[in-house]
Every structure is written in C-alpha cells, then in structure tokens.
C-alpha cells in the first residue's frame, strides 16, 4: 500500500504521521488511567523515567563517532562537577565540533 505524493497525498501522509504520534503522546497516560498507583507502580514509573534517558543515550554513544563520544563524556564530566545543565551542554557540543574539526 502506498500513497502517491501529490499535494493531497502529502497532506494525507502528514495526517497519518500526526495521528500515530498523537496516539503515542496520549496512549501512555490513557493506559495509566486504568491503573491504581500503588507504591510499587510509583517505583516502577520513577525508575523507568530515568531509564528512558539512559536507553536513549547509551546506544547513541555506542553508535556515534568520536565527536558524539566526546560530546557525551564532556557533558557528563562538566555536569558532575558543576551540576549546571547549560554549561555542560555547551561544553559537550563544542567538544563534538572541535573533535570533528580536528579529525
């Protein structure tokens, strides 16, 4: 099944993408409205939430180039030292740019 990328077709494709994305935005909350929040569920939610971040970042580091690895390690070190996000992010991005410029 395909949609031809005419003007109407593209609008239809974008509508499909929008609906699918909305389902993901709404779905988790909708499902939770049927769940009683016990301490166990609360604990699940909390560890899951910070695990989302790890599950995004770790494969990103493993699949990334030297610049990506530099960015993430510099961000980590700066953040652990200063506990301030913006300098950590800025240093990370700058080191990715620097590594890619040099190598």
């Amino acid at each position: 099944m395909t949609i031809t990328a005419t003007e109407l077709g593209v609008v239809l494709l974008i509508a499909i993408m929008t609906v699918v994305t909305l389902l993901t935005r709404f779905g988790g909350v909708f499902a939770m409205s049927f769940v009683r929040i016990s301490p166990r569920i609360e604990s699940f939610i909390n560890t899951m939430a910070s695990s989302v971040l790890i599950a995004i970042i770790v494969p990103m580091a493993f699949s990334g180039d030297a610049g990506a690895i530099a960015a993430l390690s510099v961000t980590a070190v700066t953040m652990l030292l200063l506990q301030k996000p913006l300098p950590a992010i800025a240093a990370g991005i700058a080191s990715a740019a620097l590594v890619r410029y040099l190598f």
Partner: peptide
Amino acid sequence: RHLLMGASLYP
C-alpha cells in the same frame, strides 16, 4: 517512548 514518558507523568 512518548507512551512511557506520558505514563511517567501520570501521577
């Protein structure tokens, strides 16, 4: 991932 992100804000 939005499913989990949304769920984590449910409380």
